[in-house]
Simulated assay, not measured.
Amino acid sequence: MNRFWTIVLDPRVLVVIGLAALAAFLFIGADVLAVAGFWAALGLALILLVWLIVWVVKRVRAKRAAKALEQAIDQQGALGLPALKTRLSWPCCASACKRRSRR
C-alpha cells in the first residue's frame, strides 16, 4: 500500500491528474454553458503553453547556473591549493593563527 501512495503522490503523477481534471472541468463547463468545445480546448492549450514556457525558462536558468558553477570550480582548480589556502584565511583569524604559530 505504501508503494501505491508513493506512486500516486509523485509530483509528475499529480500534474497529470490535475491537468486531466482541469480538462474535464473545462469541457463539462463548456457543455453546460453551451459554449463551443473549441474555447475549452483553447483554454487548456493556453494553460499548457504557459506551463511549457515556465519549464523552458527553468531549464535555461539551471543550465546557466551549472555553467557558472563549472567555471568557478575550474578557476579554483587553476589557482592550486596554496593559493586557495591564502584566499581562505580570514582577517579576523589571522591574529589568532599568528599567536598559535609563535607558541
Results as ranks from 00 to 15, higher is better:
residue 62 A to S: 03
residue 25 F to S: 14
residue 92 C to H: 06
residue 12 R to N: 01
residue 11 P to T: 07
residue 54 V to H: 09
residue 11 P to C: 05
residue 93 C to D: 07
residue 66 A to D: 01
residue 62 A to H: 05
residue 17 I to D: 02
residue 86 T to W: 06
residue 63 K to W: 11
residue 19 L to N: 06
residue 29 G to M: 07
residue 89 S to H: 07
residue 40 A to I: 08
residue 83 A to Q: 13
residue 7 I to C: 11
residue 44 L to F: 12
residue 46 L to W: 04
residue 84 L to I: 02
residue 25 F to E: 15
residue 63 K to L: 10
residue 53 I to Q: 03
residue 102 R to V: 11
residue 46 L to R: 11
residue 76 Q to G: 08
residue 87 R to I: 05
residue 94 A to T: 12
residue 2 N to W: 12
residue 103 R to T: 10
residue 8 V to W: 15
residue 70 E to V: 05
residue 26 L to C: 08
residue 68 A to H: 03
residue 84 L to E: 05
residue 45 A to L: 08
residue 88 L to T: 03
residue 89 S to Q: 12
residue 55 W to Q: 04
residue 29 G to L: 06
residue 57 V to Q: 08
residue 81 L to D: 02
residue 38 F to A: 14
residue 61 R to K: 10
residue 94 A to P: 01
residue 31 D to A: 15
residue 20 A to T: 14
residue 90 W to D: 07
residue 89 S to K: 09
residue 95 S to N: 06
residue 67 K to T: 10
residue 31 D to W: 15
residue 33 L to M: 13
residue 54 V to T: 10
residue 76 Q to I: 08
residue 48 L to S: 13
residue 54 V to A: 11
residue 79 L to W: 06
residue 34 A to I: 02
residue 102 R to G: 13
residue 103 R to K: 09
residue 26 L to R: 05
residue 54 V to Y: 09
residue 52 L to I: 05
residue 48 L to I: 11
residue 46 L to K: 09
residue 59 R to H: 01
residue 35 V to G: 14
residue 7 I to N: 13
residue 17 I to C: 09
residue 23 A to W: 01
residue 74 D to Q: 14
residue 65 A to P: 04
residue 79 L to H: 03
residue 27 F to N: 05
residue 66 A to R: 12
residue 53 I to T: 07
residue 54 V to P: 01
residue 7 I to Y: 13
residue 19 L to H: 00
residue 17 I to T: 07
residue 20 A to C: 13
residue 66 A to C: 02
residue 97 C to H: 09
residue 2 N to K: 07
residue 54 V to K: 14
residue 96 A to G: 07
residue 47 I to M: 12
residue 21 A to T: 14
residue 76 Q to S: 10
residue 4 F to K: 03
residue 62 A to M: 06
residue 87 R to K: 09
residue 18 G to V: 06
residue 30 A to M: 07
residue 67 K to G: 09
residue 64 R to W: 02
residue 39 W to R: 07
residue 21 A to C: 12
residue 69 L to C: 00
residue 45 A to G: 10
residue 18 G to N: 05
residue 87 R to M: 11
residue 5 W to S: 08
residue 103 R to D: 11
residue 26 L to T: 05
residue 91 P to S: 03
residue 17 I to V: 15
residue 14 L to H: 03
residue 33 L to F: 13
residue 67 K to Q: 13
residue 7 I to T: 14
residue 36 A to V: 00
residue 55 W to T: 02
residue 78 A to R: 12
residue 11 P to I: 01
residue 92 C to L: 09
residue 101 S to D: 04
residue 60 V to D: 00
residue 39 W to Q: 01
residue 78 A to Q: 13
